[in-house]
Design a protein around this nucleic acid. Sequence first.
RNA 1: GAACCCGUAGCUCAGCUGGAUAGAGCAUCGGAUUUCUAAUCCGGCGGUCGCAGGUUCAAGUCCUGCCGGGUUCGCCA
Length: 581
Amino acid sequence: MTSLTTDLSRTVGDVFAAEGLDAAFGAVQVSDRPDLAQFQCNGALGAAKAAKANPRAIAEKIAARLKSDVRFAKVEIAGPGFINLDLTDAALNARIAAPERAAEANGKTALIDFGGYNVAKPLHVGHLRSTIIGDCLQRLFRADGWKVIGDVHLGDWGLQMGQLISEVEIRGIAPVYFDAAFKGPYPEQSPVTMEDLEELYPAASAACKADPARLEAARRATQQLQDGRPGYRALWQHFVKVSEVGLARETASLGVRFDLWNGESTVHDLMAPMLEDLKARGFAQMDEGALVLPVAEPDDKKPMPPLLLVKSDGGVLYGTTDMATVVERVRDYDPDLILYVVDHRQHGHFEQVFRAARKTGIAGKAELEHAGFGTINGPDGKPFKTRAGGVMKLHDLITMAVTEAKVRLAEQGLGEDYSPEEHETIARQIALATIKFADLSNHRTTDYIFDLERFSKFEGKTGPYLQYAAVRIQSILRKAQGEGHVPCTPAIHSPEERALVLQLLSLGDAMQAAEQKRAPNILCDYAFTLAQNFSRFYAAHHILSESDAALRASRLGLCARVLAVMAGTLDILGIAVPERM
RNA sequence: GAACCCGUAGCUCAGCUGGAUAGAGCAUCGGAUUUCUAAUCCGGCGGUCGCAGGUUCAAGUCCUGCCGGGUUCGCCA
């Protein structure tokens, strides 16, 4: 369903056009001053500037034409030339009565890259944002009619793999994979568990940092792995499988689903032909022993180093796999947009890759975009750590949030009579809402301080507060059903209802803005404002005890619409609404 | 050293291509309501939008400089 302001913009735009002005000046938005009007159009100011005319005079002409439209209860000119508009309740009622339709398929494909998960490494707070923000964006794009392909894009092919392999070799954990005389087949059972990997990788990484010989061994192992040494490939397969099972379990517990579990290794076979092609077409060249692709442009304000494709030792880098991944995605999906939801500190890297992809034409019609995000900091304003100073694992963070949710429930004296299973389910749902809403309600690009105590509060701008608002409406509707009251199409009878209807009707604006700016915080604001409007309505009017049957049915209908919109918005945010709380 | 991001109320944060009196939550103070789950509603207090210039009818928003914080700058990802 097109948003109300879009329709109003068309109406007002036609009037601008009728006055010989650009219809784009007719853009209508929800008013910044709700005390003065419901909607406003600032176009007269812009039109006046363009035409070097008096803004109020233009506004007068526009307003005169708009006044003949019966949908408007008020058309006023204010200040330097704002056009303030109110719709009649009849117009609002008609609008809210129209059934909410899902967006039609727009024929466009978006590929969302959640890049950042790595084989052998558990998820930590750093992965929280790419997962939560990326999931929200994929839900949002889908809701708007895009075909969306979410790809975890696993880090499974770099030096870290070589580090692991050489660590396993040194420890003598599974000698068969290192026996050059062994002809296979290799064991089906993995020689290591996820827990082993979580211990092996940091050890290997630290050893390589401390000892150049170890680093060299790791490099060699990486190279041999990529060249296809059978034992290494077999061992690596185990690493990947074990890791994927662990990662899938964790992301599933977050309620996040991916379409593809591709990794850097997926494109390995595409790299050699791609590199040949880039060399043949003169884009790639040798420099200081490495193969590079220059991406600097004359008007650059900062030095832009070339994209490194092949190191002087013959190994490839993540820029190479990123390029090959673009080739693969264009070949398989021909997307209109590839969105990389990755920490903003990698901005420079993506700038290089995007330039290289555009310059060489490998991106096809796809727009490449980096939706970067800031870091999650602890109370001290520094990157979030455990009390012991280590990296905070995602699993531990969720456990903390579940514990906190139970504390909150106990504080409110809630859930004591629920079964242990239901109590646990509700606590988990609250915990995820706490974490997700906290993350999404902060602007994507800024760093924020993770304050679990504040985020988990049941009052204020929090996830649990929104869940509660939805739960309370569910409760009313259930009770109404029990009493045999049937909701009907809502109509406005009071200022509180009018404000609530206006908020319901601005859903499209919020979704559109959130999508265009890749900014989930806009949806969070929308949901919170909706909950506030509902609370005002709820405080001012009785619903079930209303004796006028028609009024009661209308208010129940309004409740049903609010619940539908709230649940739908929370769903896009990846937040579930519990049956009860 | 260079480039990019940030600096808004006591705290945590919004503020769209420049537009009307800069907003929200928390905290604090006061009031309502004793409820359809109070996890509520209404109101007060609180800001020279880092500083100084500039463009404009209009600047938190655009430009320049400075101060303060963060990040990044070819063989890790």
